[in-house]
């Protein structure tokens, strides 16, 4: 699903070159839930922005859903972002001027989807996150947890091949964070591929696989190290 090989990202100024990612390789299979952890400044957010085609990279290769995205132009990258990737941001990034319904509708409009189909998907995704009764509410009228659920609904509405979550519980209190994580786990269990960036090792243990990044390089890959509580329960013998 997501395969980066010897990927690098260099920020150049007149006097210095800074490697945000160096010889970075990762392979995320379809249906995986991968947590990317690391301290601040380790390069995990840079990885996420490149993975989400929000930014270009300097060297190496990146295949997303079998497509080499190295040389795609801006419009092609926008199209892939719109159709294949769902974003969940730490700060929710809802559009404050639009209500819940309109916020979820944003990526679907850019896809040129017909109104009836948009409505169906919006209602389904909002029901999925338990906010179908808040259609007319504006972001400012919702709690942080609810806003993040709307953001998840927005990410899900387009049926993306890959969900990218950047510190999805970073702005939430413990109770709300737990609710959001359970929602992500449910979504994963339904077959979604999720890559979550977090600096919280405890949160990372909820993922299927943990990739640790330091100084722009993958230093540790722990496969199937930890399952979430719910997964454990699901896989436990009766």
């Amino acid at each position: 699903m997501l395969k980066m090989t010897h990927l690098s990202k260099v920020y150049r100024t007149e006097v210095v070159e800074t490697y945000a990612l160096r010889d970075f390789s990762i392979d995320v299979k379809e249906g995986e839930f991968v947590a990317v952890t690391g301290p601040s400044g380790s390069g995990k957010t840079t990885f996420l922005t490149i993975a989400g085609l929000l930014e270009t990279f300097t060297g190496g290769s990146y295949h997303l859903d079998g497509v080499d995205v190295s040389h795609l132009n801006d419009n092609a990258r926008s199209k892939i972002r719109n159709e294949k990737i769902g974003f969940i941001f730490q700060a929710f990034n809802l559009i404050p001027d639009l209500n819940v319904y309109d916020n979820v509708e944003v990526p679907l409009r850019y896809r040129g989807m017909k109104a009836a189909e948009r409505k169906k998907r919006i209602m389904e995704s909002l029901e999925r996150v338990g906010l179908s009764s808040r259609l007319k509410h504006y972001p400012a009228e919702l709690s942080g947890g609810q806003q993040q659920r709307v953001a998840i609904a927005r990410a899900l509405a387009g049926s993306p091949r890959l969900l990218l979550a950047d510190e999805p519980t970073g702005n939430l209190d413990t109770q709300m964070a737990r609710g959001v994580m359970e929602l992500l786990e449910d979504i994963h269990r339904e077959g979604a591929t999720i890559v979550m960036v977090t600096h919280d090792p405890e949160l990372a243990t909820r993922a299927q696989r943990n990739v640790h990044v330091i100084d722009g390089q993958v230093v540790d890959v722990a496969e199937d190290r930890v399952f979430s509580t719910s997964q454990l329960a699901e896989h436990s013998p009766a």
Partner: peptide, 16 residues
């Protein structure tokens, strides 16, 4: 600006 970035992240092209 942030909102525009979000729209771009969600699939808006520059022309949009």
């Amino acid at each position: 600006t942030k909102q525009i970035g979000v729209r771009r992240a969600l699939g808006a092209r520059g022309i949009d």
